[in-house]
């Protein structure tokens, strides 16, 4: 199988099996993902598939939403903060810390 580093998209998987396919450049906003995906030494780097064992589909969806939001607005000035549902914010905070985003 060809190394996935060529592929333009990566797959992020939640612990309850939801899969999110997002552009590689967007995912690499996260330092953790960037390191995982850039090296072929990690299975993630070879397959382009990252499994977040600790987070549910709802949280992972929000994370992916942020990646795309960030990608979309990266060249703009005075971007408002992305809206985060309050009930998710603590879990997202932990995830953001883990992902170094």
């Amino acid at each position: 199988m060809a190394p996935s580093t060529d592929s333009e998209f990566v797959t992020i998987v939640s612990n309850d099996g939801f899969e999110f396919i997002i552009p590689r450049s967007a995912a690499c906003v996260s330092e953790t993902f960037r390191l995982m995906l850039s090296s072929t030494n990690f299975p993630e780097g070879r397959t382009g598939r990252c499994v977040l064992e600790d987070y549910s589909g709802v949280v992972v969806e929000k994370i992916c939403e942020y990646f795309c939001y960030n990608e979309k607005h990266k060249d703009q000035v005075n971007v408002p903060d992305m809206d985060i549902p309050p009930e998710l914010c603590l879990e997202l905070l932990m995830a953001a810390d883990f992902l170094n985003t």
């Binding site: 994370i63 942020y66 939001y69 960030n70 607005h73 990266k74 060249d75 703009q76 000035v77 005075n78 971007v79 903060d81 992305m82 985060i84 309050p86 914010c89 603590l90 997202l92 905070l93 932990m94 953001a96 810390d97 992902l99 985003t101």
Partner: peptide, 26 residues
């Protein structure tokens, strides 16, 4: 002023907004 803030910072702010509804930080 350009681009989005980090997710971490956004979340921390949100947590601070809702601090009175939080019972435990975990």
């Amino acid at each position: 002023p350009h681009g989005t803030q980090s997710l971490l910072e956004t979340c921390i702010k949100k947590v601070a907004d809702y601090i009175h509804d939080i019972e435990d930080f975990g």
